[in-house]
Write a protein that binds this DNA or RNA. Structure first.
Lengths: 107, 107
DNA sequence: CCTATTAATCAAATTTTCTTGATTAATTAA
DNA sequence: TTAATTAATCAAGAAAATTTGATTAATAGG
């Protein structure tokens, strides 16, 4: 049954890859700070986020893309503005209740 | 009250730094695989882990150190052997119940 | 149409992380 | 004591992630 084992390994590998990208997204102080601000403020425009983070637009876009690619934030464009917000479903799926609190306005 | 704000920012910064190092530790497919094996087998010796992971001793030590420095695995030395195991307390503190399952033998 | 605004993308430089092979340190057994 | 075993550490090179400044693309307003 070598094939089945191989298939299982493959799907486990895919699973690990997904978590790898999500943990990578969270594995940065600046991005955790972004997540925290998005939690406190809710849906927020890049142009508002940049001064709050003390970051250039280019750098901020880079980090937002990493969070968005990992599926842990939402993105919405209106006119020339982009608004980002927490994907609470993914965060709840990923993190402990205790840790989710860091990303919840109520805590 | 600028001082208090500064102090809070500082402690939040420290908090983010701690999570950064824990997420960094998990943000790697190989290390997730190590965690998975430690879960299935419980306390495991480096010399047993190396062939299971298909890794050289040096490389494995490097990755184990990252997990251990982040506090998500335990280490115990007996004679010339080192045994590693999951720090379930930290994992439960960090990850969702659903995700912890990946690191639980019962699931 | 022209200009201004906003944000994504690109390329080059820098920094960080990972890999490799060798060395070192500690312990055990002969 | 000597040799063998196990694992940590080191230094150099390779690979990946991040930063920076410039460019591009899309939209809005005059």
């Amino acid at each position: 049954m070598q094939k089945e084992i191989a298939l299982q390994d493959l799907s486990q590998d895919k699973e690990f890859e997904r978590y790898e990208s999500q943990f990578k997204a969270l594995a940065d102080k600046k991005r955790l700070h972004i997540m925290n601000i998005l939690t406190q403020r809710g849906k927020t425009c890049v142009c508002d986020l940049a001064p709050l983070m003390g970051m250039t637009q280019s750098k901020l876009s880079y980090h937002l893309k990493i969070l968005w690619d990992a599926g842990i934030i939402h993105k919405e464009t209106k006119g020339t503005n982009s608004y980002y917000s927490i994907n609470m479903k993914e965060i709840n799926h990923l993190l402990s209740h205790e840790l989710c609190c860091i990303f919840k306005p109520s805590c």
